[in-house]
């Protein structure tokens, strides 16, 4: 049972977010109406993804400074899970957009940012796949990871402010919002636990994958 508490906490929080997200009262807003409940799924997944990507960045930097292969595996597994969460976030967003905007994909700065982020990390996985030697793979992947993370951050944070066009997302450009100021306290009660819950679940998957990796390596070397 030792070390189990945070996994349980993760399950409880995500369950709470699902049940609470569907059943608890939400403020009614123009256009959004009940679709506002997607806040509890779409956005926490993105948050968890960003947290995992940052964790992967930290692991890559640690790998470069220490040369510990375990850090490298950790970085790559974190990326895998972050990518999974990214796809889930993308699909929940697309379903939502289909009903709210009438189309699953528009030329929106945030959507483009997402597409780029996903492309970058798929490229990361392909890069890893094309290298055989473990140490060389670790080094090259870590360098690419750091490099691309910075570029992605630039894209997500700088370009939307530059282009002058507001995102269609709620909370941008005067759209009805679930931003900081419009989210009432009931919604916050579900939203923040959901973020923590998804992050914990993500971390759990990473730790499981790490263990599988360990076993596989052992079999391979024996």
């Amino acid at each position: 049972m030792k070390g189990m508490w945070w996994k349980l906490l993760g399950i409880v929080l995500v369950l709470y977010a699902i049940i609470g997200g569907f059943l608890m009262p939400v403020p009614s807003m123009p256009i959004l109406n009940e679709t506002i409940r997607n806040t509890y799924f779409h956005i926490p997944m993105w948050f968890a993804m960003m947290i995992l990507m940052t964790a992967s960045l930290v692991n890559s930097i640690q790998y470069l400074s220490s040369g510990n292969l375990k850090k490298d595996t950790l970085a790559s597994e974190t990326i895998n899970v972050a990518l999974l969460l990214g796809f889930l976030g993308l699909f929940t967003g697309m379903i939502w957009a289909n009903y709210t905007w009438g189309t699953p994909w528009t030329n929106d700065v945030k959507l483009n940012g997402t597409a780029v982020a996903i492309l970058i990390y798929v490229a990361y996985i392909i890069l890893r796949g094309s290298l055989q030697d473990e140490h060389r793979r670790a080094k090259v992947a870590a360098v690419y990871n750091i490099f691309s993370f910075v570029m992605m951050m630039l894209f997500i944070n700088v370009i939307p402010r530059l282009s002058g066009t507001d995102s269609l997302h709620p909370g941008n450009g005067g759209n009805p919002a679930f931003g900081e100021y419009d989210m009432n306290s009931t919604m916050r009660m579900v939203f923040y636990p959901a973020v923590i819950g998804w992050t914990l679940i993500g971390t759990w998957i990473v730790s499981l994958r790490m263990r599988i990796n360990k076993i596989e390596n052992k079999l391979f070397y024996d």
Binding site: V116, A123, L127, S148, M151, L162
Partner: peptide, 30 residues
């Protein structure tokens, strides 16, 4: 430099560089 480590695979260059160069190119085209 990164792509050369994969053993002269020309596709990898395009795969790696396009998403990274996108933010830059976007601003440039503007």
């Amino acid at each position: 430099a990164i792509a050369s480590k994969t053993g002269n695979n020309p596709t990898i260059m395009a795969i790696l560089s396009f998403p990274i160069i996108l933010p830059f190119l976007n601003t440039l085209i503007g």
